[in-house]
Each structure stands twice: as structure tokens, then as C-alpha cells.
Simulated assay, not measured.
Amino acid sequence: MTEREPEGGEAACWVSEVCAECGRLRAECGHREDDEVPRRVGGRPGRDRDAQGRARNGRPRDGLGRPLPYGSQGAPRQPEGVLRTGGETLREAQQLLDAGRPFHAHEVLEDRWKTAPEAERALWRALAQYAVGLTHAARGNAKGAATLLARAAEGLAPFEAEPPFGVDVAGIRRWAARPEAPGTTVPSADVPALRGRPEG
């Protein structure tokens, strides 16, 4: 029996699971990315691993999290496994979103999802999906953006009546449901902030 990947998988979990060509989940569509990791004998993907043997994608990535060839100069990544409070997570993720780095915001939100108390995990997972939806929008993948934004909106629904940490759950859900939302650019004053934007 093989050891299961920790919940959340590697940092690019949702970014790479949506097909840029058709917007469906990659496992369902059958398309293959040109830069996909080659398969080993038996069909298992060849994967980078960390010192503990856990699967980790070691390829450099550009500012929107797209994999670059090994040996390329990539954008700096957020350190993995950082323990942050809910407030710290939201502040850091928002700074990254405001800087046009939604992929990196996703990594910060995913760290909190993996370490938060059980009652909060669905919140952080949905916010990470929101950031990944914005990542797909910034990459020009409107179908992939729509898929992830819909997941985020659905995941945030149970928190709308009493939003934890001051998260603008209603604003994010309302914006994500708009047909034009997936075509937006990041950063944009139109994109709801995690804790809402001041009026005026």
C-alpha cells in the first residue's frame, strides 16, 4: 500500500488539474500538456521528491505558476509549510493578489488549509481555489477560471451567514458567479479583495 499524498497535494494542485485547452478537469478531458512530466514504466509519472520522499514539483515556474524547463530562471516561490494565523494568511495572500501574483497567493492559502483547525479547512480550501481561478483568468484560460471560481463559490457557501476572519464571502461568491468574471485580469479593482474593498 502506498502512502497517500497529504490533503492538498503539491503546491500546483488545482492550477495544473484544469485543462487550458477545454477548461475541464485534466483527468476527464484526455488532453496532454506539452510540458507534462514524462511517464515512467507502468504509467506512473516521474516526480520530484523532497528530502522526506513526498512528491514536490521542483520545476521553476513563471510569475503565474506556469512550469518552465528545468534549469530556467523562475519567479521566486512562496516558502512551503509556513505556519500563519488566519489574519496573517489573509494579509499575505491579499498582498500577493494586489501584486498580480494569484498563484503565489494560492500557495499561502493552501498552507493555511493544510494546518488550520478542521472546522476552518473548507474555508481555506475554497479561498485557495478562488486564487487559482484568478490564476487561470490571468493566464487567459477563461474556462479553467470559471471551473475553479465555481468551486470556490460553492465551497464558500456554508460560511456566508457568518464569515470567519472578516472574509468577504458574499462579495467573492457574487463576483465569481458573474459570466464576465473569468475573463478578468489580475490585479483589478473589479476583483473582490479577500476581506472586501473600502467604499469610494
Rank of each mutant, 00 (worst) to 15 (best):
E3C: 13
L156V: 06
G183M: 09
E160R: 13
N141T: 12
I172E: 00
K114T: 09
E80K: 10
G8C: 08
E162Y: 00
D48S: 14
G81V: 10
A27S: 14
S188W: 03
G71P: 03
G155V: 03
G140V: 12
E36T: 15
W14L: 10
W113R: 09
R44D: 11
L83Y: 06
P6C: 09
A137W: 06
L83Q: 13
S188K: 01
R91H: 13
E199R: 06
T115P: 00
D34C: 13
R49A: 13
G58A: 14
G155F: 02
G171P: 03
S72V: 03
A93H: 04
R174D: 00
A145V: 08
A20G: 12
K143R: 15
L134D: 11
Y130M: 11
G155Y: 05
G86P: 05
E107P: 00
A20L: 11
G74W: 02
Q129S: 10
G81A: 08
A170F: 02
V41E: 14
W124Q: 01
Q129L: 12
W14H: 10
P38Q: 08
P79G: 04
P102G: 04
R197V: 07
R195W: 02
T184G: 09
V167N: 00
G42Q: 08
T185H: 11
E107Y: 00
G133R: 03
P187V: 01
W175A: 06
G133N: 10
T85R: 10
A20F: 11
T135S: 12
V18I: 13
A177V: 03
E28A: 14
S72L: 02
R139Q: 09
R24V: 06
H104V: 04
A93S: 08
P6V: 03
H31E: 00
G65Y: 01
R101S: 03
V41D: 13
G166V: 07
M1R: 10
A177L: 04
K143Q: 15
D34K: 15
A122V: 05
A170V: 07
E3K: 14
T185S: 12
G87R: 11
R173W: 08
W124K: 01
R66S: 09
V191L: 01
G133T: 04
P76T: 02
I172Q: 02
K143W: 10
G65W: 05
E28H: 09
L149I: 00
G100P: 04
R125Q: 12
W175E: 01
D34R: 14
V191T: 09
R173L: 08
A51T: 10
P69S: 12
V18M: 09
E118M: 04
D35C: 12
L194V: 08
G86R: 08
H104E: 03
